[in-house]
Nucleic acid binder design. Structure first.
Length: 426
DNA sequence: TCTGGGGTCCTAGGACCC
DNA sequence: TCTGGGGTCCTAGGACCC
């Protein structure tokens, strides 16, 4: 057993303006220029380059509201291309795994690494090596924050975003209070809109103040999550690294419509399509759903007409991954909640109570079940080979034009070898 | 005219039981 | 006038994250 006691060291690696950076790979001429990426249907702004941020363009703002600034400043606009971002994300994560297996992939553009086994005085240098390697191998710029807990590594990362080196370690700093003091309370990981309001009311407006507040007070007036955050600010690790990604518990598929929908048939088609996507997803992960929720709603932002939103949840008699059964139940639920005369903006479904046990199934295993299983398998295989929705149910309305907007797509597919950008070795 | 999508966890309160 | 008390389980909705 080693006698050396290592300080706990957690690094948070975060890709800078990830979606924008992905698009820039294929158009290097856009470096240093303002660029944004839009959500589905070109609805909201979901990624901004620093130059776009500097223009005052806010995260999550509806596109049409920012259009004036965008046109005036010649901001480059992209519709989102999730296939591209997912692919680039996998490349970045693979690169990280080259450095350590102690990794938690936290989101599409973020990962926590446990660097406890590296010497304290070398960890920042190691961070810089990681950063330059990711840039070299994938072309994606990152920021890296290193500290003793996840919450503090988030803060270190926040500071690193403004540093030229892109890497900040709090490990060897004796007293980090002067740093925490400059972190606004709403920038602390785990403090959202409601908690910010609550803390401000109680004269807590930065991370240092939250760190120094009594634990009993937080637990009493808020909840365990809040006290965990405060503890982590004090350097006491409460949120551990989740190395193995556990199987998910639910699976949602939803879309807003490009144009409002009043027609029942069109709603049915959208719900059917959502079900087929979700069913395929859970089958690919060998999961079975216990229940399904279907929901529809009109736009919450328009006051013309009355707002209507409703949902219906149904249990399956036996947990299932069968597309037909999932669609059948969803459509029954839709019929139950549909009301005529509204301009619907969105529909969605949620498969929940997901499990990978086939316990329930085995009891009822028979020929018919096997037949359906094989059918599902061949549907998935065909769709995988020839593109999504090659094989579909009639109700998904595949012959029709999709009710979505995607005006600014770069149409880049990393599966196409010749479009892959060549990244210059540094 | 036009406002994303996909997750997790916690808690309050209702249903039910003795 | 006045209607127990304590426990468990489940779910819907809220808050948070990216």
């Amino acid at each position: 057993m080693s006698s050396i006691q290592h300080t706990k060291k957690i690094a948070l690696v975060d890709c800078n303006s990830f979606y924008v950076s992905c698009e820039r790979l294929f158009k290097p001429s856009l470096n240093k220029k303002p660029v944004i990426v839009l959500s589905n249907n070109d609805g909201c702004i979901i990624s901004r380059s620093i130059e776009a941020k500097a223009l005052g363009i806010k995260m999550g703002d509806p596109y049409f509201k920012a259009k004036n600034i965008i046109l005036k400043n010649k901001v480059h606009v992209f519709s989102s291309n999730y296939a591209l971002y997912g692919d680039m994300s996998r490349r970045v994560m693979r690169t990280l795994k080259y450095f350590t297996q102690e990794i938690e992939i936290y989101s599409i553009d973020e990962a926590f690494l446990d660097l406890t086994n590296f010497p304290d005085d070398l960890v920042e240098l190691f961070g810089k090596k990681i950063r330059s390697t990711i840039l070299e191998w994938t072309g994606i710029p990152t920021s890296i924050g290193i500290a003793t807990t996840k919450t503090l590594s988030k803060i270190a990362n926040h500071v690193a975003k403004k540093e030229k080196s892109g890497v900040v370690s709090l490990i060897n700093i004796k007293n980090i209070d002067s740093i925490l003091e400059k972190i606004e309370i709403n920038d602390v990981w785990g403090v959202g809109k409601q908690l910010t309001k609550f803390y401000i009311r109680n004269n807590i407006s930065n991370a240092k103040q939250l760190k120094n507040i009594s634990n009993t007070w937080i637990k009493k007036s808020s909840n365990v999550l809040s006290s965990r955050t405060a503890m982590e600010l004090r350097g006491i690790s409460c949120i551990s690294l989740e190395k193995s990604q556990s199987k998910r518990k639910s699976c949602c598929v939803s879309r807003s419509f490009g144009k409002k929908v009043e027609n029942y048939q069109e709603l049915k088609e959208s719900v059917t399509a959502h079900c087929l996507n979700a069913a395929e997803k859970i089958r690919s992960e060998s999961l079975f759903a216990k229940s399904i929720t279907v929901y529809i709603r009109t736009s919450p932002f328009q006051n013309k007409g009355i707002y209507y939103s409703n949902s219906k949840t149904m249990d399956f008699p036996i947990a299932t991954d069968n597309s037909f059964e999932i669609v059948k139940n969803a459509l029954a639920g839709l019929e139950f909640i549909f009301k005529d005369g509204y301009r619907y903006q969105k529909s969605g479904i949620i498969l929940s109570g997901l499990s990978d046990s086939e316990k329930n199934q085995n009891l009822f295993f028979n020929k018919k079940n096997n037949k359906i299983k094989n059918l599902m398998k061949s549907i998935d295989l065909t769709n995988h080979r020839y593109g999504r929705s090659t094989l579909s149910l009639a109700d998904a309305g595949i012959s029709k034009k999709r009710n979505t907007r995607k005006q600014y797509s770069s149409k880049i597919d990393t599966a196409d070898f010749y479009l892959l950008p060549r990244v210059r070795a540094i």
